[in-house]
């Protein structure tokens, strides 16, 4: 039996280096004192300080966090309902169309989703801004969230909920007190996925927003088009650190929960 040898170790190290080196280089240069990105001018945190003076960027970041919070919350609620319908209701009229609508946005190019939603908002005569971006993000992220919750719900033992109902709990109460607590890690993971997808989206937001609402990726994109600056490196480093802390701590929580559960 071949075991984990030096060749495997090399493949592993090379693959992980490819994934992480570009980001590590970016992070390193965010602490560069020199404005010239390739010349190392000593360690400095001046670009982080200058970020705090960049009011348009801070406004965009605040708007993006609000959009991500609201859209992830709505998307997770809709996804929970959709997952329950798909897993528990068996065959119902319109099921094929429904599961198709859940699956399609996963492979839909963002430019197409963005264009189609914009045309809808124009047809309805809605003012474009915070709410149109939020609606667009709910539509995109609820499908990802549904997949996450669905996979956990499939593995869930429905007899627990049936037992609660036999003991006299109405279906909604059995769901809230028995099923939902067990589903909680999947619901939390779905919310996080929706939150980061929304925070990250450039293309759909560009189509569906108006002049009053510029999100963080849109600001970063217009800055990036003009070239590499240490200030963008600093902003990127903060975002990378934020996501890394959330994902790693979430995975530790889920792991501990799996370990402590019999």
């Amino acid at each position: 039996m071949r075991r984990f040898g030096p060749l495997h170790m090399t493949a592993l190290a090379a693959g992980l280096a490819f994934l992480y080196l570009p980001m590590l280089i970016l992070i390193a240069y965010s602490f560069n004192a020199s404005r010239l990105v390739t010349v190392w001018g000593g360690f400095s945190t001046r670009w982080y300080a200058s970020l705090l003076q960049n009011q348009p960027l801070l406004d965009a970041a605040w708007l993006s966090l609000q959009v991500a919070f609201v859209s992830a919350t709505i998307a997770t609620i809709l996804a929970l309902l959709a997952a329950v319908a798909l897993v528990r209701y068996g065959r119902f009229r319109g099921r094929t169309l429904f599961s198709g609508m859940i699956g399609a946005p996963l492979i839909m190019p963002e430019v197409v989703t963005g264009l189609s939603l914009l045309l809808l908002f124009v047809a309805l005569g809605l003012d474009r801004g915070f709410w149109t971006v939020t609606i667009a993000h709910v539509t995109l992220t609820m499908c990802f969230a549904t997949v996450v919750i669905q996979s956990r719900l499939v593995a869930f033992d429905a007899s627990l909920e049936e037992a609660a109902q036999d003991l006299g709990a109405p279906p909604w109460k059995a769901f809230l007190t028995v099923t939902l607590p067990i589903l909680a890690p999947a619901v939390a993971a779905a919310w996080m996925l929706a939150f980061t997808l929304s925070l990250d989206d450039l293309v759909i937001a560009s189509f569906t927003t108006g002049p009053s609402a510029t999100t963080l990726p849109m600001r970063l994109y217009s800055a990036v088009r003009l070239g590499v600056t240490p200030e963008i490196n600093a902003a990127s480093t903060i975002l990378i650190a934020f996501v890394a802390i959330v994902v790693v701590s979430a995975s530790l929580v889920v792991k501990r929960e799996l370990v402590t559960r019999p």
């Binding site: 570009p22 980001m23 970016l26 990105v37 980061t196 990250d200 970063l220 990036v224 990127s236 996501v243």
Partner: peptide, 14 residues
């Protein structure tokens, strides 16, 4: 999970 835009930006610098 890390921003798509940032990962592309990192390659511009490289």
């Amino acid at each position: 999970w890390t921003s798509f835009l940032i990962r592309i930006y990192a390659w511009i610098g490289i």
